[in-house]
Design a protein around this nucleic acid. Structure first.
Lengths: 203, 203
DNA sequence: CGGTTTCCATACGGGATAGTATTGACGAAT
DNA sequence: ATTCGTCAATACTATCCCGTATGGAAACCG
């Protein structure tokens, strides 16, 4: 399980810093992502950090690109459906984002998006990810027989919903959040234009 | 237009600080809300601040409550419809939040929600606001003849959508965002259970 | 084995910020 | 006019943090 028999280093590399940075990002947001804090977490000093990175900004950009690559990899995987099971896959995508299961991923997602509201470079990365996501999801709708414009509307609604949902605090509102989410998934996914009428609710 | 003929003070009071704080909050987020920065913006020094507030936390809580009151006031106003025009009002609510017109308000909204992700007190405030909003919006759906559970789903979808939308960067995705938003509004507002079939798209 | 490279520790300067303590200015009441 | 209460300026301490400079240890190379 060693990375390489020759040249095994127990030392930190750029990637280790980026990984830890993403952890902090999820917990504290970009504002809490300080190099000395990060160094303490990795049990080294800044001396190490400034060896691997030019400055703080350098780390932030690395985090951004690391996140982007991971997201896009996941997206294409999640939106690849066996022919005929596209609707099922749509439900699956909604489910992935709206459950507490992927809490960590959503925390990172929200931290990056908040970051992007004030940082053009982060905004550009989010734009790429969103574009990919929307196109992939739209293809699923198209494969279900939904016309282009409606497919666009529905996939946009889908992603806006899942991100917005994790910004809300709705404990007091509904006693059965599971039912709520199921019904909302139907509102998003079910189109009159669809081939399948009563889809097996992919759970 | 004077506040009071007697006792007019040109000096700062708590409220002036809170107002300015919300301005900074919109621009920089909670993390950027520092007392010295705020003081500079108001052209005074911290000496003034610590007279009006116990500490930074004191200001933050004041901001939170000020925001809550304003939100709830707006919500009840926005969701009050003349009988028979409830559907129109639903479209209006969607419109309010999804246009760039109310950009400032949305920036504050997002800043508070990001804040709430790490601060229990902020989360409690957001919970109150969300609960009020959801119930008010649900009443609109109910008034349209939509059954309870569907009304719950649709109003939740409504708010999650508008917040999520302002987190996304979709410039490249669609060439006609106006049409997109219109169609999505239809997906959210239009129910099979509705009395009115083809509502005049309140623009 | 000695030199070189790689990675990290330490020490330092400088800036931003929270909070306190003290003083000062100004208007209002007596 | 004197006094008092209100609000703000100044000065100071203590942190936290970025970035740099420099030295040191361990691995690697010849």
């Amino acid at each position: 399980m060693e990375t390489a028999p020759v040249k095994q280093r127990i030392q930190l590399d750029r990637d280790a810093w980026v990984q830890a940075a993403i952890e902090v990002l999820a917990e504290e947001g970009v504002a809490g992502l300080r190099v000395e804090v990060l160094a303490k977490r990795l049990k080294v000093t800044k001396g190490s950090f400034y060896w691997h990175f030019q400055d703080r900004r350098d780390l932030l950009l690395a985090v951004l690109h690391y996140w982007k690559d991971g997201r896009i990899r996941d997206i294409v995987k999640q939106t690849r459906a066996q022919p005929g099971r596209e609707l099922e896959q749509i439900y699956h995508v909604i489910d992935i984002y709206s459950t507490t299961r992927s809490r960590r991923g959503m925390m990172i997602e929200l931290a990056v998006r908040d970051w992007a509201r004030r940082d053009p470079e982060a905004a550009a990365i989010v734009a790429e990810v969103d574009d990919t996501r929307l196109r992939c999801a739209r293809n699923l709708f198209l494969a279900c027989g939904v016309p282009m414009e409606e497919a666009s509307s529905r996939c946009m609604l889908l992603y806006a919903y899942v991100f917005g949902l994790s910004l809300m605090v709705y404990d007091r509102f509904d006693s059965d959040p599971a039912r709520l989410k199921r019904d909302i998934a139907d509102l998003i996914a079910r189109s009159a234009a669809m081939k399948t009428e009563t889809p097996a609710t992919a759970s």
